[in-house]
């Protein structure tokens, strides 16, 4: 069969996708370093040593999940409790991974799917889903290749330094990740009115529900609120405005 760009990625496509991923991974890595640094500070209080912080962060890459587990280390919680904590705080990755499964060309081999799955974080998922057309796994790997080491180094540095970055720097860097989220959700909102409404409703609902949770001092984690709101709003949107049945090449 003749060369067809829709069917197979050439080595050159993969290289380009990888470098695009590296580039888009820079703001993620910056934000990660700052957040991980404060996570490391907290991990030190929970008796973790720098190597444990590095390994834990390198292979987990989940801020809320790690935070939850590290607090259990110092409480000497049961191993089962750690598994449950990891499940609950990271349940949204189950949704993201399901969503991402639809982004692959059906030809994507199993080991590539596994390696992309392991890379899923809020941010890496966000930019992977925004990739035009079928996802080239090398794009996700490029972004993970720069952001993962910085997440791990940030945690380790936080443990070693034992004190946070200057407050001013942390404050500024803390919006880097959110700025990126905006760049992912706003352009499709401009194109598709249904997405615009879904995003607006999400902002409102998130604000109201979290304010309510605070006001009533309910012990619901941020992660749980995020999952419940996502399921309810996305299901409502799917019922009210189902996507058109399009042939294969929808994007």
């Amino acid at each position: 069969m003749l060369h067809n760009s829709n069917v197979l990625n050439t080595a050159d496509d993969n290289r380009k996708a990888f470098f695009k991923g590296l580039q888009d991974g820079v703001p993620i890595a910056m934000g990660y370093f700052a957040v991980a640094f404060s996570l490391g500070f907290m991990a030190k209080k929970c008796t973790l040593i720098p190597l444990q912080g590095f390994i834990g962060s390198f292979f987990t890459r989940a801020s809320a999940g790690e935070y939850g587990v590290y607090t259990m280390v110092v409480q000497d919680a049961s191993y089962l409790a750690v598994i449950v904590m990891s499940l609950i705080t990271n349940l949204r990755y189950l949704l993201m991974s399901t969503s991402l499964s639809q982004k692959f060309s059906p030809k994507t081999p199993l080991f590539q799917r596994i390696l992309v799955g392991c890379c899923v974080t809020d941010e890496i998922f966000g930019i992977s889903i925004a990739y035009p057309g079928d996802l080239n796994p090398w794009y996700t790997w490029g972004a993970a290749a720069i952001s993962t080491p910085l997440w791990a180094l940030g945690t380790m540095s936080g443990i070693i330094a034992g004190s946070v970055l200057p407050a001013r720097a942390v404050s500024a860097l803390s919006v880097a990740l959110y700025g990126m989220f905006l760049a992912i959700i706003i352009p499709p909102s401009r194109k598709d009115r249904a997405v615009l409404i879904a995003v607006a409703v999400s902002f409102l609902a998130s604000f109201s529900v979290r304010a309510l949770v605070n006001a009533l001092s309910l012990s619901l984690s941020d992660g749980i609120v995020t999952i419940v709101l996502t399921i309810v709003i996305a299901a409502a949107a799917a019922l009210i405005k189902p996507v058109a049945d399009e042939p294969e090449e929808a994007s």
């Binding site: 949704l95 809020d122 997405v195 799917a238 019922l239």
Partner: peptide
């Protein structure tokens, strides 16, 4: 299909606001 189409935008929106305003 429709549900999964909306999930990414909804979940990122829910995580961005009000968290972005509270992070600084």
């Amino acid at each position: 299909k429709s549900f999964l189409y909306y999930v990414p935008y909804v979940t990122l929106a829910v995580m961005t606001f009000p968290a972005m305003v509270q992070a600084t």
